[in-house]
Write a protein that binds this DNA or RNA. Structure first.
Length: 502
RNA sequence: GGCGGCAUGGCCAAGUGGUAAGGCAGAGGAUUGCAAAUCCUUUACCCCCAGUUCGAAUCUGGGUGCCGCCUCCA
């Protein structure tokens, strides 16, 4: 089996074969930093993070480049509105972007070029296009001539003559008059008076949106790369124009595989900055949604399909994650009680020979991921691996007799350990890792208890007395009261009661 | 108008010719004063119509509905 990916360029699923054996060059279209990232960005970058992790895990040496667009009309608008500068707005949002990505356990790109730092490459590329007759200047602007690009429209499947010109009504008449063809697009925009600008042979101005990616790919990775990534909304015009520019300049294919993720929808409509219906990553995390819940939510759907966002779906993912997490945490929390050695991070997985059971799981996982990154099917493998581990963890946490357990009914410790190790490994390929779950305070250490713990202990004592008096209504009221605060009571045999946070 | 995509149980969602993964939620049972946890059992005429085939959720044709893109967009 080899990895197959759906290539937008050919509209087919194709086996992945890199240009250079065992090496993969990836360019991912990044954010325009005029605002915080929202769930749509999270979806996209989680999907590509999984692609990257899977390729690396499969033995490829991956170079992952993701740009930051820090020159843009909207950044300029923000800066003007708040009385600051493009640099300030960009810098602030880049910092936020990196923090959000780190929180979601998305690996940072190997290199993160910025438009403001690639101006030489941009100007050079525009110059080449001009000298090849693929670009023309007009009143301080420079435009790319789409009619000079053979195969323009090949990525998006468009025929120029069939398109509705200015379908969204966002193009100004002034700009339109300068163009030879309505679909020509700006490589360089002359600065209006008072606007920040960069010098160029065509006068002061700033680069158009598409040209930076062409310049950055070339600068960071060369003329042809393996995989180019982005959201489906970038297929046209952004990626179409990137192809046109790059291939007009180099005469070589820009990328062999073009992958696009589906949009995040809110009540059936695309989530987007311009639609104003977005939820930022930050707001979600601050509202108590855990990063891994968000990852699970995203990965439960195939990356190319639309993903519908709702509080209910997110809640379901949170519950699902609790189960996976309980399994992932098993050894950290109960390893000593089970007689497991804590794993050595230096050589984690090769030490234990795998049972046939785990090798089946490994194969199923690989088969799922090889099939155009079917993370949903891959997760099914994780859930299957996790089920007995989770059950064991729950039993140890709130089981009948925690001090004298028979924790391994029907399984040997080495089987369980092998399953756990495989689970951790495969979860890691999806970027899922254990999150410490809140646990009960040490029972033998009342001195360490804070006021909240003491209050809980007092309530438990009240309830115990109510139960002794057979006043179950009062006892259950206390149970419900605590449950309302996320405290779950566990009655043990022998009359004692423990509690955990949920 | 052009291009592309999607339609699977209460919700989310895999499955591209061999008789429906998984998650969430629910139901019944064992256990519990009640719970929690655990164990067992359980919930689908795959949007409609026609066709191809021994066999179709899967392929073909025709509908219906929804979504994305057509120079802001992940």
């Amino acid at each position: 089996m080899t990895l197959r990916l759906t290539n937008t360029l050919t509209r087919r699923s194709e086996p992945f074969v890199p240009l250079v054996p065992a090496q993969v060059s990836i360019y991912c279209c990044g954010v325009t930093v005029y605002d915080l990232c929202h769930l749509g960005h999270a979806r996209s970058y989680i999907a590509w993070d999984v692609l990257r992790r899977y390729l690396t895990w499969s033995g490829f040496a991956v170079t992952f480049v993701q740009n930051v667009t820090d020159i843009d009309d909207k950044i300029l608008q923000r800066a003007t509105a708040e009385g600051s500068s493009m640099e300030e707005v960009s810098e602030r949002n880049i910092t936020a972007f990196q923090a959000d990505m780190a929180a979601l356990n998305i690996l940072p790109p190997d290199r993160m070029p910025r438009a403001t730092r690639c101006l030489d490459g941009i100007r050079q590329l525009i110059g080449e296009l001009e000298s090849k007759g693929a670009a023309y200047s007009a009143d301080g602007d420079v435009y790319f001539a789409v009619t000079k690009a053979a195969g323009y429209g090949k990525l998006s499947g468009r025929d120029l003559s069939e398109q509705q010109d200015n379908a969204d009504g966002r193009v100004s008449g002034e700009e339109e008059r300068r163009k030879h063809h309505p679909f020509d697009f700006a490589l360089w925009k002359g600065a209006k008076p008072g606007e920040p600008s960069f010098p160029s042979p065509w006068g002061p101005g700033r680069p158009g949106w598409h040209i930076e990616c062409s310049a950055m790919v070339r600068q960071e990775l060369g003329d042809s790369i393996d995989i180019h990534l982005g959201g489906a909304d970038l297929i046209f015009p952004h990626h179409e124009n990137e192809i046109a520019q790059s291939e007009a300049a180099t005469g070589k294919p820009l990328a062999r595989y073009w992958l696009h993720n589906g949009m995040v929808n809110v009540s059936g409509e695309k989530m987007g900055k311009s639609l104003g219906n977005f939820t930022t990553i930050r707001a979600l995390l601050e509202s108590g949604v855990s990063p891994m819940t968000l990852r699970l939510f995203v990965l439960q759907a195939h990356y190319r399909k639309p993903l519908d966002f709702s509080a209910e779906a997110l809640e379901a993912a949170a519950t699902g994650w609790r189960g996976l997490n309980a399994a992932l945490e098993l050894v950290a929390r109960f390893g000593d009680r089970l007689g497991f050695e804590p794993p050595d991070p230096a050589e984690p997985l090769s030490a234990n020979p795998e049972s046939s059971d785990t090798s089946d799981s490994r194969e199923a996982f690989i088969a799922a991921m090889d099939d155009d990154l079917n993370s949903s099917a891959a997760l099914a493998v994780l859930f299957k691996l996790a089920r007995p581990l989770r059950a064991l963890s729950n039993r140890l946490e709130r089981g009948e007799d925690p001090h004298e357990p028979d924790p391994l009914p029907g399984a040997t410790p080495s089987d369980l350990l092998a399953q756990w190790q495989l689970l951790v490994e495969l979860a890691g390929v999806l970027g899922l890792k254990a999150e410490p779950s809140p646990t009960a305070p040490p029972r033998e250490d009342p001195a360490a208890a804070g006021p909240v713990e003491r209050e809980i202990a007092a309530l438990i004592k009240q309830r115990l007395e109510a139960r002794k008096a057979r006043n179950y209504a009062a006892a259950d009221a206390i149970r419900d009261q605590l449950r309302g605060h996320g405290i779950e009571l566990i009655d043990r045999p022998g009359g004692s009661t423990d509690w955990i946070r949920r």
